[in-house]
């Protein structure tokens, strides 16, 4: 049998996730639409009325301010989920990754195939979210289209390092801590709901350490059409570089740790 070319292993792993996803596809698409609708209605329109009454955001409606933040934050949450439980299922619960590893598929294929799948899934979630934003009239610039890949990259900046961590775990105990002490605080404090500048001055620099903040600044600049001014182009490139840095380093460790785990058995 001729051996399939190197890239196809990644494709096979991707295909596995796709087949699983198609089983719950409809429910998933439904909630992908519903979640942004509910959040934008309650927080953007309902609560937004009280924010707008104060003119707190210098002329920008709260709905328009909030929408890109929620877009990126939602991708973070989806990514964190996809990078924890499914990875543990494959390595520990059903052990299907060990089954794959007994075939020509390599450890790196399993890591990269899963990350590729997460990228695809994030693209889907972000696109649906962006459509809802546009339907709410919450996007002031056509550049919102570019906020979709930004949201995907932000998601991957979480997914890659979290998948690497998940590969080292034998039980899901610590995942709850990641969500409670990592994902939820980031969701709340990284500029999703209000500018980071409203936080006490001492904690503001902390926002720079998280991929979410960089993703939100970029997506908001694109959605509001203020990119070039806020953030400036050089600053936007710095934000983008930081996101890519998280992805590259995270992917490196995900490949190494998932491979190591497969070898250990």
């Amino acid at each position: 049998m001729a051996l399939a070319p190197a890239y196809s292993g990644i494709g096979r792993v991707f295909e596995h996730r796709l087949v699983l996803y198609l089983k719950t596809f409809r429910a998933s698409i439904f909630s992908s639409f519903l979640t942004p609708i509910l959040f934008l209605t309650a927080m953007g329109l309902g609560l937004g009325a009280y924010v707008d009454a104060n003119q707190s955001l210098g002329g920008v409606s709260y709905l328009a301010f909030l929408a890109p933040g929620l877009l990126v934050a939602t991708c973070m949450q989806v990514a964190a989920f996809e990078a924890t439980f499914p990875i543990m299922a494959g390595l520990v619960w059903s052990r299907v990754y060990h089954a794959m590893y007994a075939t020509p598929i390599r450890g790196s294929d399993i890591a990269l195939g899963n990350l590729a799948w997460m990228g695809f899934r994030l693209l889907l979630v972000a696109s649906i979210f962006a459509i809802v934003i546009v339907l709410f009239g919450a996007a002031t610039s056509p550049l919102i289209v570019l906020a979709i890949p930004v949201a995907m990259l932000t998601g991957l900046a979480f997914a890659a390092p979290i998948a690497a961590f998940a590969a080292t775990q034998r039980t899901p105990e610590k995942f709850a801590a990641i969500f409670r002490f990592g994902i939820t605080p980031l969701f709340l404090f990284s500029g999703t709901f209000y500018p980071v500048e409203s936080l006490p001055a001492i904690v503001q620099p902390l926002a720079w350490l998280t991929p979410l903040y960089h993703g939100i600044v970029l997506a908001r600049g694109l959605s509001l059409g203020t990119i070039g001014v806020s953030p400036t182009i050089p600053l936007a490139l710095v934000h983008l570089a930081i996101l890519l840095g998280f992805i590259v380093v995270g992917t490196f460790f995900a490949v190494r740790l998932i491979s190591a785990r497969l070898v250990r058995g």
């Binding site: 009280y50 707190s56 955001l57 105990e173 939820t184 605080p185 709340l188 404090f189 209000y194 409203s198």
Partner: peptide
């Protein structure tokens, strides 16, 4: 840890939404 973390979630919400967003309201 899981047990303890249940206490922090509403606290995070209070600090973020109550005080952070509250400042705009």
């Amino acid at each position: 840890l899981v047990l303890l973390s249940g206490f922090f979630e509403p606290l995070f919400y209070l600090l973020s939404i109550g005080f952070g967003l509250g400042a705009l309201i």
